[in-house]
Amino acid sequence: MIKRELIVVGGGPAGMAAALSAYENGVKDILLLERDQFLGGILNQCIHTGFGLQHFKEDLTGPEFADRLIIKIKAIKADKAIEVSLQSFVVKLTDRKVVTYLKPGKFEEVQAKAIIMATGCRERTREMIPIPGDRPAGIFSAGLAQKMINIEGWLPGKEVVIIGSGDIGLIMARRFTLEGAKVKAVVEIQKESRGLVRNIVQCVQDFDIPLYFRHKIKRIIGHDRVEKVEVVAVDENLNEKPETAFDITCDTVLVSVGLIPENELIEMAGAEIEDLNTTSIPGIFSCGNSYKVYDLADSVTRDSEKAGKQAAEYLKRI
């Protein structure tokens, strides 16, 4: 079996920052595995600005932020110091630090002395809230819609209702509007938004998009494609006030109700997430959104640099 010093799984800002910092702290044999065809992770689809204000002291778009890290990785000339393997999908991790990954034409097993997991997060879905009703086409998670518009150049819908007023939901309200779609409402069950004030102003208020607090989607209706949603107000205890129910016609429902760390591989190895970046198995680390859900890519980068250092120190100790 092939052996390496350090394997980093995930090539988003967390994985890149961790690999760079491990290198700077003396690790010279790093394999960075990324499932996608590009480095950058979710940043590639976040084409709005607001990234890097803390870390680079500049207002960058997501892809620009990613690029800063990618350039640094490419600048390292030493052979294999950071070897990037794209289209490499990790399917298994064991407590003996054996990583199994697939890439077109290859099925590899590699053993490392230390591993950093930086696999990001996934979105919570309609099924997890859960919203009853029909199951037509036209229901998307906000991130999927973002990918369709920004990466693929597709318009998923023309009359949109967004569930959830976190940053991703707010940003998508603006994005759909700029693409010529009509955002008919953003519906939030809490009494205020979790998102940044700047996003509420610039993404919703500036476009006169109705934002309903203390309201929830009670039902999704539509035979083949979404036709409408039923909305109802709720009280402080989130109990429905049935007399307030009303319908909004739309062809699309965007679900933006939070993120969940992707930790299945760590669970597979029998490890549990512990304090900052560490797990119950010494030498297996977790950073970025797979460690916990961060609001900002800047904070992800800062904490993931620590993970790189932690791994370097661990490798010196053993």
């Binding site: 086409a137 036209g138 693929e152 597709w154 318009l155 998923p156 819908g157 083949d224 494609r225």
Partner: peptide, 20 residues
């Protein structure tokens, strides 16, 4: 065309337009 890809048949198209 991508605009004709459906969830489960006519009427359940996934996207409205493809601009690329």
């Amino acid at each position: 065309p991508l605009t004709e890809v459906t969830k489960r048949g006519k009427g359940s198209e996934i996207i409205k337009e493809s601009r690329k």
